[in-house]
Computed example of a mutant assay.
Amino acid sequence: MNSTEIILAQIEDINELNCVSFASKKHWGYPEEWMELWRDDLLLTETDFEKQQIYKLVLDERIIGFCAIQESTEVYDVTNLWVEPMYIGNGFGKLLFSFCIEKVVFNNKPIIVEADPNAEAFYASQGFVTYAQKESLPKGRFLPLMKMELS
């Protein structure tokens, strides 16, 4: 029997979490040179642990995903939501995201995410709506900016 738990990540988890985010992004078949362009954006820093609430999804004592949310005065920002490639499409992302929303979101303000184009359908299935696009790297690539209003 597999056991899963979602718990607050600690700074000691940073290397494992960064491996998850990089592997998850790479899962979509992006070229190596693009992955290098995005490396700094994909990797958590010590500062992220101070500013964001980061929860890890642990399956059989192994981190297989994480979600990070940062609150500002106007919005909650989903800064990271990653699941190990072999577990993508099995409901773990939804489980992790739902848990984090329950744990982190207490005020009635929008939740936003700058999504990977491959994750747009996932976020739409969670109630997000695309309201704009943001140019990314390499030039000519755009990311959907998505928002979910709480009612």
Score class of each variant (00 low, 15 high):
11 I>W: 02
1 M>P: 08
31 P>M: 10
41 D>V: 10
22 F>S: 14
118 N>H: 10
85 P>I: 03
131 Y>L: 13
125 S>E: 08
57 L>G: 03
148 M>S: 04
111 I>S: 02
41 D>Q: 11
128 F>A: 02
12 E>C: 07
137 L>Q: 15
143 L>N: 14
146 M>K: 02
35 M>L: 15
11 I>C: 03
137 L>T: 03
121 A>D: 11
142 F>W: 13
120 E>Q: 14
82 W>D: 02
85 P>N: 00
24 S>D: 04
53 Q>A: 03
91 G>Y: 13
5 E>C: 10
75 V>K: 10
58 V>P: 04
23 A>R: 13
78 V>D: 05
110 P>I: 09
85 P>C: 01
2 N>V: 15
90 N>T: 11
51 K>D: 08
150 L>P: 03
65 G>C: 07
25 K>N: 08
58 V>L: 04
124 A>N: 14
131 Y>Q: 06
9 A>W: 01
69 I>K: 00
43 L>S: 13
89 G>C: 03
122 F>S: 00
65 G>L: 01
79 T>Q: 11
83 V>P: 02
118 N>Y: 15
40 D>I: 15
18 N>C: 03
140 G>F: 15
135 E>K: 00
39 R>A: 09
70 Q>I: 12
72 S>C: 10
12 E>Q: 12
101 I>P: 06
106 F>P: 00
12 E>A: 10
9 A>D: 00
136 S>E: 00
112 I>S: 02
17 L>S: 09
144 P>W: 01
9 A>N: 04
3 S>M: 08
45 T>G: 12
129 V>H: 13
126 Q>Y: 06
60 D>L: 07
116 D>S: 11
2 N>L: 05
101 I>R: 00
113 V>Q: 01
42 L>H: 01
88 I>V: 11
127 G>F: 05
72 S>I: 11
101 I>L: 12
96 L>G: 09
67 C>E: 00
112 I>G: 02
103 K>S: 12
51 K>G: 01
34 W>I: 13
79 T>R: 08
7 I>C: 08
27 H>I: 04
45 T>R: 08
126 Q>L: 08
141 R>A: 10
31 P>C: 15
17 L>N: 07
133 Q>G: 02
43 L>H: 12
74 E>S: 06
107 N>L: 09
21 S>P: 11
114 E>Q: 07
23 A>K: 07
63 I>C: 10
137 L>E: 15
123 Y>E: 06
